[in-house]
Write a protein that binds this DNA or RNA. Structure first.
Length: 480
RNA sequence: GGCCUCGUGGCGGAGUGGCUACGCAGAGGACUGCAAAUCCUCGUAUCCCAGUUCGAUUCUGGGCGAGGCCUCCA
């Protein structure tokens, strides 16, 4: 604790890296926009989940696990959910159908996040459990002259906030010139956005002072962050695309409702993801969900361990665009194979690792706005060092585990790979025995034939010779 | 049209006002019956044009190129 360099984070609000100084070191508070649960999360959705999980882990390390509160919401009220519910469960009453959609997709999302090695957030509130909070904030906004009811909606009045648009670097007058915002007669300003809208009979709704209706998208996050983190908190994160309008509008709502100068001090945004060089979209047919990757053979003709997905995601700086390719996943898996092999040779008990002894250069890179590319390069150095054959430094291993890698034992890792292929270990054993016999008899034609057969089964063998007795030995592993 | 990123070796991807990481792929070697794995060694890059500077890949300006946002899409 003597003179640790500060954590630096890039702040979208100031367009610069700045030292992170929490409002209250005893309770560091972070909010990240979670998924709208109308469909299974795609691999692009996984990026903020993983990136902010790393930040969560880092903050816990720096400030103490019990001093960090991480809130990631689940948006379970949304018109897309309604449409999905009606489409997928036409026989059910709408409320039941909606619940069926949101329960399934939310559970799937949580399972995905776990498979990707992410810790559970401190809180994972649902929008539908926080309607009262939203109504209270809307009431404050109306009372303060920041919102008005018109034509069955309650709208936020952007003109009531002098520096609206600061986060996204937009000015209201330019917005209007852009002409892409629909001008609607009931809006005072074309950029005014919905806080509450009335629901028809066949739409989900909650009673409110303005009639039975449902919240606009942005108000949910203002409500949930306020309830769990307060009027002003430390870090707000999400994808790049949320800067405008979502985060801009959250800021407007929260600051105007509570009369504060800031909703969050630092705004962080992760970059987008492309798939094999192209934008991911359903029309291009390259839309890939997290569960597709984990449990089907849709991407690259095979399943992928969550840890491979995690490493592949972390090898690119979080603010850079990332190209999601089969090649990158294969490379990530090879790297993990090597590290697990090293770990197996080291005889370190991963359950007895100190969590305060970490590689200094690794930590330096992490503290520099989560420079994971450089941090991971440090891990290559740690795991690749020849002299470390027998003594992998515990600090290197603990470093990898800090960012959620190497969460398994080497045996578990190998088992996962074997399980993926449904291998018949007895058959493999007898083939290897037969091959050893052929080699002993110098029948190399036969031994090579057996090796080809094993390769066809996805097995890679490695021959060795006992240095003392000269005895031939063969070990095998799942082919990389 | 407005705003914002970014252009580094064959590929991915960092940092830096002077000597440019790391990984993959590639080359040579050791080992092997031959392989594989492992180990040793090695090569190759900073979009273009100006400017600032003793010196720029790094700073400034312009150009070209790529991507994103401006549509409740992470």
């Amino acid at each position: 604790m003597t003179s640790t360099p500060p954590l630096k984070l890039y702040n979208t609000l100031t367009c610069s890296k700045q030292d992170f100084l929490p409002l209250d070191p005893a309770n560091v508070r972070m909010y990240v926009c979670g998924p709208t649960v109308y469909d299974f999360a795609h691999i692009g959705n996984a990026r903020p989940v993983i990136v902010f999980d790393v930040l969560f882990r880092l903050l816990r390390h720096i400030f103490g696990a019990e001093h960090v509160t991480y809130v990631r919401n689940i948006t379970d009220v949304d018109d897309k959910i309604n449409a999905r519910a009606a489409q997928d469960f036409p026989g059910l009453p709408l409320n039941d159908a909606i619940r069926a959609v949101t329960e399934t997709t939310a559970a799937r999302f949580q399972a995905d996040a776990k498979a990707l090695g992410c810790l559970e957030p401190t809180r994972e509130p649902r929008a539908t459990d926080n309607i009262a909070e939203m109504i209270a904030i809307i009431g404050k906004l109306i009372a303060g002259g920041h919102a008005y009811a018109a034509a069955g909606e309650v709208l936020f009045s952007v003109g009531s906030m002098p520096d609206y648009g600061r986060l996204s670097g937009r000015r209201l007058d330019e917005q209007q010139a852009g002409a892409r915002v629909a001008v609607e007669a009931h809006k005072r300003n074309p950029a005014d956005f919905v806080l509450w809208k009335l629901s028809a009979e066949n739409e989900p709704g909650w009673e409110s002072p303005w009639g039975r209706g449902r919240p606009g998208w942005h108000i949910e996050c203002s409500a949930m962050s306020h309830r769990y983190l307060g009027e002003t908190f430390d870090i707000h994160g999400g994808g790049l695309d949320l800067i405008f309008p979502h985060h801009e509008n959250e800021i407007a709502q929260s600051r105007c409702a509570f009369g504060t100068g800031a909703m969050a001090n630092i705004w962080m945004h992760n970059g987008f993801l492309r798939v094999e060089g192209e934008k991911m979209s359903k029309s291009l047919g390259n839309f890939v969900t997290i569960s597709d990757l984990l449990e089907t053979e849709k991407f690259g003709g095979r399943k992928w361990p969550g840890e491979v997905l995690r490493l592949a995601m972390l090898k690119t700086h979080y603010r850079q665009p990332i190209d999601w390719t089969v090649k990158a996943l294969e490379e990530a898996e090879r790297t993990l194979d090597k590290w697990y092999l090293k770990l197996r040779q080291s005889n370190i008990d991963i359950n007895a690792l100190p969590d305060d002894d970490l590689d200094e250069e690794f930590m330096g890179a992490l503290r520099d706005d989560l420079n994971l590319a450089e941090a991971i390069a440090q891990l290559y150095a740690v795991f690749g060092d020849r002299d470390m054959h027998q003594s992998l430094p515990a600090s290197g291993l603990a470093s990898a585990r800090l960012i959620g890698l190497l969460q398994h034992t080497p045996n578990e890792w190998e088992e996962m790979k074997r399980g993926r292929l449904n291998l018949d270990t007895n058959k493999i054993g007898s083939l290897i025995t037969a091959r050893l016999a052929a080699r002993a008899a110098k029948n190399f034609t036969e031994s090579d034939r057996i090796r080809d057969e094993l390769v066809a089964l996805g097995i890679q063998i490695q021959d060795s010779k006992d240095p003392v007795t000269g005895e031939l030995k063969t070990v095998w592993e799942v082919k990389r």
